[in-house]
């Protein structure tokens, strides 16, 4: 994903000049990773939170200064604030029922068996990541999914780089332990072979 940083930086610069198509390019480069990060924090509400975040990104684009990598960090910061707002609201309001969400998540009839498996493994990875302590989960997501470097991830989280490095390290170790355990017990050889 960092491979796109040059292209992303150029697109952002053009968008700041008012180029609508360039903004769409930046959106397409950033959105998948941003959505992955948000899934790790707010789960199935990620799409909604991402939409909110993009409204703010579109509005404040003129304020941003930096290159492609900087844009990832800046957008991740905005998305994170929207996600935390969302979680705060959720705490006040009762959550929508889990059952309803499960129904929506069911693979449609056109899904092949393979697609269903992939969907399951995404859900499963998500479950594992969300099972981590929040600081570890966020550090892992920002580093691995969004592709930020240590200092940038630290800035997004408002923490010291050392603390974030440690959190990412512990999170990965924990995930490695869990995934490793599964690779022995269940069908994991196949799963791992497919995904790596």
């Amino acid at each position: 994903m960092q491979a796109h940083d040059g292209e992303l930086g150029a697109a952002v610069a053009r968008a700041q000049q008012g180029d609508e198509a360039a903004f769409a390019v930046a959106y397409r480069i950033v959105q998948p990773a941003l959505l992955g990060y948000l899934r790790g924090i707010v789960g199935d509400d990620a799409e909604d939170v991402a939409s909110d975040a993009w409204l703010e990104i579109a509005r404040d684009l003129g304020r941003f200064k930096g290159d492609g990598a900087g844009f990832r960090g800046w957008t991740a910061t905005i998305a994170r604030h929207r996600a935390l707002d969302h979680l705060r609201r959720q705490r006040v309001r009762p959550r929508s029922s889990a059952l309803e969400q499960d129904v929506l998540e069911l693979p449609g009839p056109q899904s092949t068996h393979e697609q269903a498996l992939e969907a399951m493994s995404t859900e499963h990875a998500l479950e594992l990541v969300r099972g981590l302590p929040r600081d570890q989960a966020e550090a892992v997501l920002l580093r691995v999914v969004v592709g930020l470097d240590g200092p940038a991830a630290a800035r997004v989280l408002g923490k010291r780089p050392g603390a974030v490095r440690t959190a990412a390290y512990r999170g990965l170790k924990r995930l490695a332990g869990q995934l490793g355990a599964e690779s022995v017990t269940d069908d994991a050889p196949r799963t791992l072979g497919e995904s790596t």
Partner: peptide, 25 residues
């Protein structure tokens, strides 16, 4: 068990990234 089979960090990273990032918007 698990302790014997901790994956490499890079493997975990690849797995997490592949699972959570869906291509296309």
């Amino acid at each position: 068990r698990a302790s014997r089979h901790a994956l490499l960090d890079s493997e975990v990273e690849a797995l997490i990234a592949a699972s959570l990032i869906r291509d296309g918007v």
